[in-house]
Amino acid sequence: MIALLARDLRLAVRAGGGFGLGLAFFLIVIVLIPFGVGPEASVLTRIAPGVLWVAALLAALLSLDRIFALDHEDGSLPLLATSPLPLEGVALTKGVAHWLTTGLPLTLAAPALGFLLNLAPAAYPYLLASLALGTPALSMIGTFGAALTVGIRRGGLLLSLLVLPLYVPTLIFGAEAVRLGSDGLSATVPLAMLSGITLFSYALLPFATAAALRINLR
């Protein structure tokens, strides 16, 4: 499991795709927002929590189809399926690897981009906490979506159609936590719900992911 994790991380860093691309996308979306809504600081402060979360979500979405695509193309997916590691473990590892290469950098980069959107100072800890707690769920849900669409050529668009509705609860609680934080209110409830969704996703979705992979490998 650790070997697989290390291999996936090595591949991601070497190919450079998921790593840099997601971050660059995140940056560009955030830069585009003020062009769209105008440079007024108070407006930006108000929409910053939601915009940061939506942009992070879209950036995570961008690299989802690569989770299984490479393994599918070079034929290592059937090998993984027959390896001693259960497929559920493979699914879990893939989710964690995706988070380490996308969710974690996004979380770390978010405060820097918060400055661009004039995010309220009180919101920074909540931004970090909510992204750190929420993006793992995004990765695991995305891994499930990627497993569903692994056999489909040009499944990227379909993948986003399938995964985006599943992202709704995570997004709501994540953005809500930052918004409450920026208003100086207690954000314990949304943060607790967010961790609940993440734990729930990692507990159950590996099984659904593995089932989808088995069906696709049949």
Binding site: P165, L166, A211
Partner: peptide, 20 residues
């Protein structure tokens, strides 16, 4: 599988939206 997982998340969304 999508229908089953989707049902669970639709339920979650319902409560999330109520909270929101």
């Amino acid at each position: 599988i999508l229908c089953i997982v989707g049902s669970v998340f639709a339920f979650l969304s319902r409560f999330a939206v109520q909270f929101w």
